[in-house]
Simulated scan of single mutants.
Amino acid sequence: MIIGLTGGIGSGKSTVASAFEALGAGFVDADHVAREIVQPGEPALALIIDHFGANFMRPDGTLDRPALRERVFQDPAQRRWLESVTHPRIRERLMARLTDLSRQAPYVLLVSPLLFESGQDALVERTLVVDVPAEIQLSRTLARDGVSEEQIHAILAAQLPREQRLAKADDVIDNSQDQAHMRRQVERLDRYYRDL
């Protein structure tokens, strides 16, 4: 069984996924795969540099992800172009990883901030939303990523609104309290997913 785990920026998706992994679940992180497919030597990187220009490449040959993020979140047409190049490649690699992991674990999590927006929810049997209020999203992301508040709001605008994400969820973890509170919810859902 594949569970799609999603949540807004700064909601704690990775922390929740790690808690499930500690209990024996497997997980694949779409963000990690998204970084892989634009590494030097990958076809997507060449297409991106051809489209946006060499100024989006760092001296070491890697993609300047912060500069590209800033550019595409200012221009929805450019963001759509980028997604048309990256999303099919991400999906293909995700499927291969999920298939491999499903042979080894009782269930597998597909961790994706854009699970619903990208159509990746079609790959899963259930959806799990990690939820926190907007003010917690903002404070955690400011502390973690060192980006501007304006850029965080642009990222939030590209994600499904909280209410819509919650309406699409089969299961929800409230990650607005301490780690122990989160782990109790993970343990309960782990038992439930194993029973399914």
Rank of each mutant, 00 (worst) to 15 (best):
F20E: 11
R65S: 10
R71H: 03
A180H: 04
P59Q: 08
A154C: 09
P161D: 00
L166I: 09
M57L: 15
Q164H: 15
F27W: 10
D64F: 14
A158T: 07
M1T: 13
I152S: 03
P59I: 04
A17F: 06
I173A: 03
I2K: 13
E187Q: 15
S84G: 05
I152P: 01
P106G: 13
R91P: 11
K168C: 07
K168A: 15
A105V: 09
A122C: 13
G24E: 12
S139T: 11
L138S: 07
R65K: 10
R184P: 06
A22M: 14
R80E: 15
M57H: 12
M1E: 05
T86M: 15
G7E: 05
P40S: 13
S11G: 02
P59N: 07
Q164C: 03
T99P: 00
Q120W: 15
L160A: 14
A30T: 05
L68D: 01
R71F: 00
G8W: 02
A122D: 15
V186K: 05
I155P: 01
Q39S: 12
L156T: 07
S102P: 03
R162M: 01
K13W: 10
L189T: 04
L123F: 03
P88F: 14
L82K: 00
E149T: 13
L23G: 01
R162Y: 01
L68N: 06
A122V: 12
R71W: 04
A17H: 14
V16Y: 06
L101E: 08
V108N: 05
G146R: 09
D174R: 02
S176W: 01
S18E: 15
R93W: 01
